[in-house]
């Protein structure tokens, strides 16, 4: 999958603005330059600045059980691709988009796609092969994880990460209308899990 810049996406949770996530300005720019020249310590600093965000994205987008493995893969890929980082976007934004590409590719590799898109409102009940958990015992994050793949990906990318429907449609290979529809169904399903 070709890694692209995030275009005009204006993330609500911009990794370079989020508190505690991502580096800022000069120090990170220097670390990126150092890491690109092979400095492992600089890359470790970048890892420590961004790992929470990448791991959280993996956990929500794909599966908590493989989040560690996916996160490792993201940073290994980032290391090998640092030479292609042109600084057009912030490093955190670039890394975030790389993480999404890795996650989407892993999803396909795992072959775990359950029913991707549902029209029914109660999408959580429609997920096959999921452990039976009393609904009231699910917290909001767990409920996100029980959404069908398509609805969950759209919900995380739109409502958590701040991408637009057109961008999500491009990433997932769907039309914007499907993205809007899945988002609505995901939100409707998650209403029951508000604390």
């Amino acid at each position: 999958m070709e890694l692209t810049s995030p275009g005009a996406a204006t993330l609500r949770r911009d990794p370079d603005q989020a508190t505690g996530g991502g580096g800022t300005g000069d120090a990170e720019t220097a670390d990126v330059a150092l890491a690109a020249s092979g400095d492992g310590r600089a890359f470790e600093r970048l890892y420590r600045s961004h790992v929470a965000r990448v791991h959280s994205l993996a956990r929500r987008m794909i599966n908590p059980d493989v989040a560690d493995d996916v996160t490792q893969d993201v940073f290994v890929r980032a290391w090998s691709k640092l030479g292609t980082f042109r600084g057009e976007a912030a490093f955190g934004t670039w890394l975030h988009r790389l993480a999404i590409n890795v996650i989407l590719a892993r999803r396909t590799t795992l072959g775990t796609e359950r029913g991707r898109y549902y029209d029914a409102e109660n999408v959580l009940d429609a997920v096959p092969g999921r452990p039976v958990v009393h609904e009231l015992s699910l917290d909001f994050q767990q409920a996100i994880g029980r959404l069908p793949d398509g609805a969950r990906e759209v919900f995380v990318l739109h409502d958590v990460e701040g991408y637009k429907h057109e961008e999500i449609a491009d990433m997932l290979g769907i039309v914007p209308g499907t993205s809007k529809s899945q988002l609505h169904h995901a939100r409707m399903a998650l209403r029951k899990y508000l604390e």
């Binding site: 949770r13 790992v51 290994v76 508000l194």
Partner: peptide, 29 residues
């Protein structure tokens, strides 16, 4: 309710992994 779902999603915290993944990454690279 839908507005509260959106607000809840935006308020989700990022958490680091339970275990430090750096040693494995460092080994791979």
């Amino acid at each position: 309710e839908l507005r509260r779902v959106v607000a809840r999603a935006r308020a989700l915290d990022d958490r680091p992994p339970a275990a430090d993944l750096w040693p494995a990454i460092a080994e791979q690279i």
